[in-house]
Amino acid sequence: MKVSFKGRSVLPGVIRGQALVSHGLLNLNKSFHRVLLKKSNNLTVEDKKSDIYQKNISGKVLCVENFDSSNVDVLFLLSIFERACIAPICILSSKQLPNSILAGLIIAKNFYKTEIVVVDKLGDELLLKIETGDIISVCDDCVIVE
């Protein structure tokens, strides 16, 4: 049975892909600082406290409760989206994304022409209904778990 969610469209678009679900707050500094230094072709989570530790987020529909925000998130996001091949294709968040994340995504869209789709404020049910590996379709503010 298909389950659908409606949220706030941060970066609109249509996309279909495989979910990678993180139930905690994702910390970009702890997760990706070292990976970005290595210029690897994968974006593997290096934060040992994260429930998606050692998982590769490249090309995935990244589903999070939210980010453990810090102002430098903008700088990490710009490095991730400068190299489109390592970035996720979509970010879904059950809560409202912090300003630093919004800023990073919007700057990346305008300067790097990234085609990522982002929806936030999807509600707490989101992470209860989506599991890693599920196929997700997103159209602007609407999310469908197939």
């Binding site: 970005l36 210029k39 700088l75 710009l78 400068e82 190299r83 700057i107 300067f111």
Partner: peptide, 19 residues
């Protein structure tokens, strides 16, 4: 300007400054 730490991990932002 909240950016004074030059690391490879921030190459994306440095590219924008260069542009």
């Amino acid at each position: 300007m909240h950016f004074s730490y030059g690391t490879k991990a921030f190459d994306g932002a440095i590219s924008i400054l260069k542009k």
